[in-house]
Design a binder for these strands. Structure first.
Lengths: 205, 205, 205, 205
DNA sequence: TATGAATGAGGATTCATTCAT
DNA sequence: TATGAATGAATCCTCATTCAT
């Protein structure tokens, strides 16, 4: 049988597909991936059960696609934000802001990524995406170190620390209270991260 | 029937119960909570299915207990580490170290907590535990601010940032390569966190 | 809507129809009738699903047609082979040869007939076809008995035995090794059948 | 999870298992393997759906077991029938009789074997069983040839021809009219087979 | 004629939970 | 306490068939 993945779709088909992804992302994030059945998704969309399998080869494939698209979109958003910027420290700051802004606006996808990181079947994909993100940040960090702008240190580790700060603040402070303005949190996250990268002030003087 | 939760157990019974918790923690972390069936657990323990329901009222109750025990144990470990310490900044450092050490040694529990945070049914419990942890750290932070040891700032936000750094570094650097020595990562995490708390050096000076 | 069965077709339509029958015969024989979906068939042909239902009213109707066509073709082939032959024993021999040759060249159809004979829904049709074939042979057998060319016996039973020998040798020896020359098997089948029809040599002598 | 295949069963469990096999054999033969759902089977037995999977790992595994058991039983029945017989021709005759008697009494299993031979997934197992049966017969045939009791010839081919005769006569004459006495058919089958093995009388004479 | 899309009943299978012994 | 057996609702997925375009 033809694979649902490589189907050539009409405009109407593309729209349906997008709609399913949207609804599924919301439901998966709300109730959890496993507790949400394919029936829940198609019911919410208002179509027959077969439609799901016309567009996706399996429930798992759908989640995988959501995750991959999310990671790609975040990365693209961050790269756009630092395009044309030459100063590595400014790149870091703008990258952190862009990352948090994206995450702030894509709460559901972030929830799914955090879930997927804990499940054997999806973890490898997530890890790969995180590695890429860490590598992106590490490039700027290495340049900043080389230029003496920040103290010497393990760029990968610093990058992971930054990811930890931004992700957790997003979940614990922005998503936890969606009515509040995210900017102060983002500002604080930037200050914390830059401070953390600079590390302890020279113990002397 | 009497509730499995409040059963008075013999020594052998306590042992069985502990064994089930241990095996379930490992399996849940390895395959995921939902993909692991009660049958998987009892088979791994080598007992019949009835045993499970003798000690636990449901699969969900078991996970809830694992999560609560884990959060309590981490907190106890951290409080023990700062007992008798009076300097708030040293409290912070020791708390961070103790937290990471505990997390480093309880990878499976951490995985489950991270999973539970993404699922509606368990998230409230996790959030409560994180709030407590953040409050613990906030106490020290508030004192440090009051004593002028660190710049003024939102203590809760700083606490959350610290949690983010430590949790993520643990997952991304310690658990990802269990053969490596965790101490350098912990040291770096402490430096990053203290640096982050101190924030950007006074722009002037 | 007008019935797909009685549709007046253009030359191109006839060709399409034939093509679907051909592909379906192969797929049904390879994977089995039930495990082969209509989607499998139209995909293999390279057309849309609607095409199938333009030419056939249902999947079942398609199989029924394949079976009926197959049984008719075999019978026609056998009748052609004995046309003009007057000696009943020679008719038998030629009929056996013709039947086996046809079966040897239509492995897929034979597989489908053998399958259909085991399934309630199709068995009656198959049985009717086999009855006809047995009757055909019985005619010659009866003449041969009447003329004293072969011993007295139940012509229908002898005919069924011949069908059993030819069908099974075809499946077990010719179809099982399509690269081998079928002629020796056919020769042996003829000898076996004629021997069988003659039965045990008079115990006396 | 423990495999349903290797489960240690209590007496009651063994009985249930046997009961399911019995009912499934009948239903599969009546309606066809694919058209019969697991629900049909458990409903006919009068148990819950889960019971099926407690005893069998899948619907396919159940059919495979039925087929294997059937082939083994027939072989055992035939071997018992010729135990102690030394004359190869008598072995053949008794083997043919025993085989047909067994088939006559196990119509459903025979139907399933005939079905399975036409489906890719099961055919290899069936073929193996038929090869064994043919080999069994070939042993006697080879001895008979060596002793000059029957003309020289391909023992495997003769064996297959015998299988074809017996199987087909069973289906077309015994199973088709279960009220009739099978003995005359069996007698005729023996005569036909022995005659077939002896082949055409020496053309000279 | 032909296609992509849709339908929804039905299928195999799983699994948390219960119960008789 | 413990076990094998049983339950049956729920899950993912398939597929023959239909329909709008």
């Amino acid at each position: 049988m033809d694979d649902a993945a490589d189907r050539r779709l009409t405009a109407r088909g593309e729209e349906r597909r997008r709609q399913i992804i949207e609804v599924a992302t919301r439901l998966f994030a709300e109730k959890g991936y496993h507790p949400t059945s394919v029936a829940d998704v198609v019911d919410a969309v208002g179509v027959g059960k077969g439609v799901f399998y016309w567009y996706f080869s399996s429930k798992e494939a759908l989640l995988t696609e959501i995750l991959r698209d999310g990671q790609l979109a975040r990365r693209r958003h961050q790269r756009d934000a630092i395009a044309g910027i030459d100063d590595p420290v400014e790149q870091l700051e703008r990258g952190i802001r862009a990352g948090m802004e994206w995450m702030a606006e894509h709460r559901d996808v972030i929830t799914l990524i955090r879930f997927a990181a804990t499940e054997e079947r999806f973890a490898p994909g997530i890890r790969k995406g995180e590695d890429v993100a860490a590598d992106d940040a590490a490039v700027a960090l290495r340049r900043a170190i080389a230029e003496g702008r920040i103290p010497d240190g393990d760029p990968d580790l610093l990058a992971r620390a930054v990811v930890g700060v931004t992700q957790h603040l997003c979940a614990a402070r922005i998503h936890a209270d969606p009515s509040a303005d995210p900017q102060p949190v983002i500002d604080a996250a930037v200050r914390f991260c830059i401070g953390g990268i600079l590390g302890l002030p020279a113990p002397a003087a």
